[in-house]
Design a protein around this nucleic acid. Structure first.
Length: 809
DNA sequence: GCATCATGTCATCTT
DNA sequence: TCAAGATGACATGAT
């Protein structure tokens, strides 16, 4: 009953004595009622408390102002559309689920979804949407099982008790779910109205869980009366609602034909109510108020036997006007459960907030997730429902099960419910409003309607947007490089293709009419250049592309292109092919490659950038292409071409001396040709050598840098070690000094007087002994020791000078 | 137009 | 002595 003792806006006016009296009355009444019900005696507490003892009611319910924040929609809607006590069922479900959830939460919050599943199973209507009987009947059947399954040992006892016919007693107490309007007194109606309003104020709407329920409600909404009719008294509405064919449970969202509850239904409800009462009276619920539970009880038993005390207990906390924070928290929890992501963190935070809510806050106390209080189960139920969306829906109503999980579960809050459906849903949902933000309930809640939708919706939107943005980002991140690479590849390939296509004919035209059949081979070579091995040395065909190259030369070209890694000769390789149709494709860019600064760059990429646009080549004409190709050739290639050297520069340069001589011997070459060939070979080799030299130079520089870094590290390490040594040396000196002073201070002469430090000193002997000597002597010895190193140095210097002198001689 | 870089080439030296 | 390689210096082209 801590809730009651908590000062709150609704109960601030209650003095401590009143609070204690409330507690006493509520507990006592509950227990007493239960006991009476157990023994089969019907006790109509309502008559005593509600009607006959207004002060008590006031005490328990708190000041009338507590009702100010109640909402009328639930009552109206309920009365209008469904007439039956859907809340009784809802509250049963809600209560049980909340209790179970709270129990589970005590262990772990992640188990909430499971818990909620069980809880809703308790409420599931076996008859489905079109069950002929009341929801209460369904509740009876499955609620018992569900309770058995879910409830702990404590609950099991209650359950057994309920099974033993508790229902009848509760019925006597007024726990009968289907309220018959005729039985209701005005006060009862007022209480019910208050309870409904409170539920609405809390923003709980059961229809939120069930989208199908909304649709159904929309259908049913046609039957709903206008606003004036909604304001009718509950009794009248209840009578009308009872007359209606289809009833929709505001919490469960289950639609069922509105029939007058039979004995079984009442019994079932009574069982539920009995459980609630047991929970309220049991030690588990002693510490906490059960406004929601009690409200559910009272609502479930709006008729005669509704214990006012219970109502008061339930209502008083609810009467507090602070519902927005609760809704926010609930939204957070909803979001967490919906997202099912990082549930631990968010759940923890929110739940902590809820748990840590000041006890004085009625919302927190009543609807917070305090694990100890069954009342908290309401909230947890809400979370559970949201968390396990699909399960929840399925549990709520079999109809919902048919709905796709996506539409039913998490998307519901996101999608702004239609105003039309809102009214209907609102009418049916009382407790749902407690746990769901108004927009979820259909935004019919005037109090917190506009504020709450934003947080949850915004959160959900943000979350979803975050996910979407993340996906987009990932896509973009993945796309940018990929796209870039693809673009590059395309560009390269295109360029390469264009190069091949454009240059192969150009080569034909520009070349001396050598075989033009190898254009394809040239393209293949160019394309395969990227994958060619790095056997640069063997593949060198630089400067030798005189147009007489054979297939082997083509292969060389390919290899050479692949050897770009550190062989800049690939440019030459292509150059050599300027007369050779096959490598001609490489010609344009190869010349440029000569100045390419990227050794590792693939020729394909190079040619793409360097090659003139294919269209330009085509348009430019063969002459232009020939000029371009000529420009791409190296001087030696030009010379070799001019001199009609019968073999490629590659061979000229890379062949071993013996083979090279044999090659020269095979042909009848003039002196000019031979000279040119030798120059080509020399320059080619020199070029390679220069490249290697530069590479080595670069490596040397890099190695030097590395060495410098290593040396710097070593230097720093040595410095650190030196510092450490100096520090340790200083410490040792200090220790020696302290020991010296200690020993010297303990020395005494024959007369027992201490020695004067100015006259005597201690001297360490080589054998470890310590001698007391006059200070003068000690100073002399010290001077001698100081001189020794100097003398040694002098000696060394003298010796060295002597040595130099003798060597000079 | 200048600076920088990469590359090619030549002259020279070394192996 | 010659071939091959190494290297400094210079020129050239591209950026």
């Amino acid at each position: 009953m801590a809730t009651w003792s908590q000062p709150d806006s609704g109960f601030s006016g209650n003095p401590p004595a009143m609070l204690s009296l409330k507690k006493y009355l509520t507990e006592g009444l509950l227990q007493f009622t239960i006991l009476l019900s157990l023994i089969g005696v019907r006790v109509d507490v309502d008559t005593y408390l509600t009607s006959q003892l207004p002060p008590l009611r006031e005490i328990i319910l708190g000041p009338s102002s507590a009702y100010t924040q109640t909402q009328f929609h639930n009552l109206r809607n309920t009365l209008d559309g469904y007439g039956i006590h859907p809340k009784s069922i809802d509250l049963d479900n809600y209560f049980t689920a909340r209790r179970l959830l709270s129990q589970v939460r005590a262990l772990d919050r992640f188990q909430v979804p499971t818990t909620e599943v069980n809880a809703w199973l308790v409420h599931r209507d076996p008859e489905g949407s079109v069950s002929g009987s009341q929801p209460s009947s369904g509740l009876t059947l499955e609620s018992s099982s569900g309770l058995q399954d879910v409830t702990g040992p404590d609950n099991g006892v209650r359950e057994s008790e309920t099974e033993q016919g508790f229902s009848e007693d509760l019925e006597d107490l007024g726990a009968v779910a289907p309220p018959v309007s005729g039985d209701l007194t005005k006060e009862d109606i007022d209480l019910i109205d208050i309870l409904w309003r409170q539920d609405i104020d809390l923003g709980a709407g059961r229809e939120i869980f069930d989208y199908s329920h909304r649709q159904k409600e929309q259908d049913v909404d046609k039957d709903l009366q206008d606003g004036a009719e909604r304001e009718d008294t509950w009794s009248g509405e209840g009578a009308e609602a009872l007359a209606r064919n289809l009833l929709v449970d505001g919490e469960t969202g289950e639609s069922f034909p509105a029939q007058v509850p039979g004995g079984e239904d009442q019994t079932a409800l009574s069982l539920e109510e009995c459980l609630r009462l047991l929970e309220a009276t049991c030690p588990f619920g002693e510490n906490a108020e059960f406004p929601a539970d009690i409200s559910s009880i009272t609502e479930a038993v709006p008729s005669e036997s509704e214990p006012p005390g219970l109502q008061n207990n339930l209502l008083s906390p609810l009467l507090t006007g602070t519902e927005s924070p609760f809704d926010l928290e609930q939204q957070w929890q909803d979001l967490m459960s919906i997202m099912e992501m990082q549930a631990m963190e968010v759940n923890t935070s929110t739940s902590e907030i809820l748990y840590s809510a000041p006890p004085g806050d009625p919302l927190s106390t009543n609807y917070s997730l305090a694990p100890n209080t069954p009342i908290n189960q309401n909230v947890s139920l809400h979370q559970a429902s949201l968390g396990g969306c699909s399960q929840d829906f399925s549990l709520f109503s079999p109809e919902v099960e048919s709905l796709p999980a996506a539409s039913s579960s998490a998307l519901l809050p996101l999608v702004p419910s239609n105003s039309t459906s809102l009214n209907s849903t609102f009418g049916s949902t009382n407790l749902a409003g407690l746990f769901f933000p108004p927009q979820l309930n259909g935004t019919a809640n005037d109090t917190a309607g506009p504020e709450l939708p934003d947080p949850l919706g915004g959160l959900l939107d943000e979350a979803m947007l975050d996910e979407i943005s993340l996906m987009d980002l990932a896509i973009e991140e993945g796309f940018n490089p990929v796209q870039a690479s693809q673009l590059e590849e395309e560009f390269d390939s295109d360029s390469g293709l264009s190069l091949d296509s454009s240059h192969s004919p150009s080569s034909l035209s520009s070349s001396e009419g050598s075989s033009s059949s190898s254009s394809s081979s040239s393209s293949s070579s160019a394309s395969s250049s990227s994958s060619a091995s790095s056997s640069a040395s063997s593949s060198f065909s630089e400067e030798g592309a005189v147009g007489y190259s054979s297939d082997s030369e083509t292969l060389d070209l390919e290899e050479a292109e692949g050897a770009v890694g550190y062989q800049p000769e690939y440019s030459k390789l292509c150059r050599m092919s300027y007369q050779d149709p096959s490598p001609l494709s490489c010609l344009p860019y190869l010349e440029h490659v000569g100045h390419n600064h990227t050794y590792n760059m693939a020729p394909s990429a190079l040619d793409a950038a360097d090659l003139p646009p294919p269209g330009a080549l085509k348009k430019g004409g063969k002459e232009k292409q020939a000029d371009f190709l000529d420009k791409q050739m190296s001087r030696d290639e030009h010379r070799a071409r001019a001199m009609k050297i019968p073999f490629t520069n590659d061979k000229i340069i890379n062949l071993p001396v013996e083979e090279f001589n044999e090659l020269l011997s095979k042909y009848q070459l003039s002196e000019a040709q031979l000279s040119l060939i030798r120059d080509i070979r020399r320059r080619g080799k020199n070029k390679m050598a220069a490249q290697n030299c530069r590479k080595r130079k670069l490596d040397t520089i890099l190695n030097l840098e590395r060495d410098v870094e290593d040396l710097q590290r070593d230097k720093a390490r040595l410095l650190r070690e030196k510092v450490e040594f100096l520090r340790s040396l200083r410490q040792m000196k200090q220790k020696v000094q302290s020991l010296y002073q200690e020993v010297f201070g303990r020395l005494r002469d024959e007369n027992g007087r201490p020695y004067s430090p100015s006259q005597y000193a201690l001297q360490y002997a080589g054998d470890g002994s310590v001698l007391l000597i006059p200070r003068t002597l000690a100073d002399q010895q010290a001077r001698r020791q100081e001189r020794k190193p100097k003398d040694r140095r002098k000696k060394k210097i003298q010796d060295s000078s002597k040595a130099c002198y003798t060597s000079d001689k």
